[in-house]
Design a protein around this nucleic acid. Structure first.
Length: 574
RNA sequence: UGGGGUAUAGUGUAAUGGUAGCACGAUUGAUUCUGGUUCAAUCUGUCCGGGUUCGAAUCCUGGUACCCCAGCCA
């Protein structure tokens, strides 16, 4: 919010009007004209049938954000729990945890659509009495048939003209459980010839003898989305009911119900849902990945779920920043995941303590360094944050460096270690490679180097420069840790683009996870706790996974550092 | 001639009749004890055709493309 205010000030300085998205423009105009008595009441209305994902975060930041920006604003967290067959209490809990983690507070405004069931029933009776709703005995197939198609208008149900009395009686008996699932529905009497399919006598209630996660067996009729949603908004006094684009066609129905009932009528506003490259965003597809075991659960660090991203090492700040940057519009867009990663790195760079860890260790012996000697070298915890202080890192005769930091026959622009070359070991000494030891298959197993004692701390008194600085870990002090490397879940930028006969899962990336169990980390990491974040120098940002145990530290790679060398390599290969 | 939406650099997003700007990205260079960070420069754009106007991304008009709708899901 601070950023938002700063931006507005800056724009005003230039004499320009602050640029805000179209929804905030509407809200601001409504405040100016006192349309809602100065109130701004929004809501975030998830159905508890899955975990929240980054797309929901966009909606959360929008709804809670708008409320927070306005003096009289508030945002409700409301569970849209009108379908007992797909909803579960465990989802209710995860949703609250995620919204809270993202930094938002609904205060006492936590609501459930299921708490309004009685009230909704009464409103339905009102509509029946006004002759605007009727009980229909057509089967589901028949209803579909009578509805017509996009280009052919529908025809009236034979039950459309039942008397008010009969409708009231039948509806009462639906509620009382006299009828089987699917045998009858309550429908709004609107217009079977409407070009908008949603207006062709939509179903308001269906019979469902199913236990609800909150109301248990109390109800056997459940309201449909269109009937329920506007009532929920109305009952809560919502002013701006913000939803995604696919509900645009439903707005006339939203308006119709509230107009006929003559009750508080919020304004529905639609925006484009978030799509991201290299991932899928629909709950249905994410559920499929979980159920079919393509990932280890809703909170798998590869998932675009809030819980997955949290476990991966994302901060709420970076997600909020991302939502701010992408803004809100009605254009169906796909955001480059690089922008998300940019926001992530931006935050992590400023806040993460640096440590040294080696992912694929290569043993290095410093031949001229005294046996059994240990020096504790001073290292900055975070060069971006002076308050982060320093720590001591042990240096000794036998070390590990990264396998990829050594090449026997280096290509052009390879600045790292190779035979005869001198490099710096970060915060320690300059070393020169003197010998390469191989096994009988010709694989490099050990390096021998000499060090220059005059370069202690990392600088040469004679002023000579070195092209490269390597990270390292002392053998005897090293913590052996597990590191899980993640890549995009899908190989294609747009996983939905598939060849004939395939679905999005054919684009799954088989290498989206790689587990390294023989990594070496500096000893300061010993006391790290789940969700602690670090930068492994020169490698990326890492976060302790909850799978960590006392004798096995497990790290998730949140995101790599930007890697110019990798780009050069890629180009050289071409 | 079913209805409802949307079109601005590669990706997003501003400009509300008056210099098409910003971010990400890409490229190049500088700085650097992280090939990180930071800094500088460069790159690429108004869907198409007419019209109104001194002046159009913006207004009018005619096209085109894409998205959504035929659940008793939300």
């Amino acid at each position: 919010m601070e950023t938002q205010n700063n931006r507005q000030e800056k724009d005003n300085e230039n004499g320009k009007r602050p640029s805000v998205d179209f929804i905030r423009t509407i809200v601001a105009e409504d405040i100016r004209t006192n349309k809602w008595g100065g109130n701004v009441i929004t809501r975030f209305p998830p159905e508890p049938n899955g975990f929240l994902h980054i797309g929901h975060a966009k909606s959360i930041c929008l709804n809670f954000g708008i409320a927070a920006e306005n003096k009289e604003g508030r945002c409700h967290l409301r569970y849209d729990d009108t379908n007992p067959v797909t909803e579960e209490a465990r989802y209710v809990n995860s949703i609250q945890e995620d919204v809270r983690w993202l930094g938002w507070d609904w205060g006492e405004h936590l609501y459930y659509a299921s708490d309004y069931f009685e009230k909704m029933y009464e409103y339905a009776v009102q509509l029946i009495r006004k002759g605007l709703a009727y009980v229909c005995d057509l089967t589901a197939d028949q209803i579909t048939e009578y509805r017509g198609t996009l280009t052919v208008s529908g025809k009236d149900s034979p039950y459309r003209n039942r008397s008010v009395k009969e409708n009231e009686n039948l509806f009462r008996r639906m509620r009382d459980g006299e009828f089987e699932d699917g045998s009858r529905v309550l429908r709004a009497k609107i217009d079977m010839k409407s070009p908008n399919m949603n207006m062709r006598d939509p179903v308001m209630y269906r019979i469902l003898h199913a236990d609800h996660h909150r109301t248990g067996g109390k109800w056997c009729i459940y309201p449909t989305y269109d009937w329920a949603h506007g009532l929920e908004d109305s009952i809560e006094g919502v002013t701006h009911s913000i939803c995604t684009l696919e509900f645009e066609n439903h707005r006339p129905l939203y308006d119709w119900y509230l107009d006929r009932l003559e009750i508080h009528h919020p304004q529905q506003i639609e925006f484009a849902r978030l799509e991201l490259t290299y991932t899928v965003m629909s709950k249905r597809k994410l559920l499929q990945l979980v159920d079919e075991g393509h990932v280890k659960g809703w909170d798998d660090p590869r998932m675009p779920t809030i819980s997955g991203m949290r476990r991966r090492g994302y901060s709420p700040e970076s997600i909020s920043q991302f939502c701010k940057r992408i803004s809100v519009s009605k254009f169906n867009s796909t955001i480059d995941v690089a922008l998300l990663e940019h926001c992530l790195r931006e935050y992590l760079n400023k806040t993460s303590n640096r440590v040294m860890a080696v992912l694929r260790p290569l043993r290095v012996v410093i031949d001229n360094y005294p046996e059994n000697e240990v020096e504790w070298m001073e290292a900055y915890n975070n060069p971006e944050d002076q308050n982060a202080g320093t720590r001591k890192v042990p240096f000794s005769k036998v070390l590990y460096i990264e396998q990829e930091d050594f090449m026997e026959a280096p290509p052009r622009k390879f600045y790292r270690l190779s035979p005869g070359k001198e490099v710096r070991l970060r915060y320690a000494y300059f070393v020169t490679c003197t010998d390469v030891v191989k096994d009988d298959k010709g694989r490099i197993v050990e390096l021998h180097c000499s060090y220059d004692p005059a370069t202690r701390g990392g600088n040469a008194p004679d002023g000579r420069k070195v092209k490269s600085t390597l990270h390292w870990v002392s053998d005897v002090h090293a913590l052996k840790v597990e590191v899980r490397l993640y890549d995009y879940l899908f190989k294609k930028e747009r996983p939905e683009e598939v060849s004939e006969g395939n679905d999005f899962k054919s684009n799954l990336n088989p290498n989206s996870i790689q587990v390294l169990s023989d990594c070496m980390a500096e000893p300061s990491l010993k006391e790290a706790k789940p969700l602690d974040r670090f930068q492994f120098e020169r490698l990326g940002y890492f976060c302790i996974d909850p799978d960590t145990s006392r004798d096995n530290l497990v790290f998730n790679r949140t995101v790599t550092l930007r890697d110019t060398w990798a780009k050069i390599q890629k180009k050289q290969q071409k």
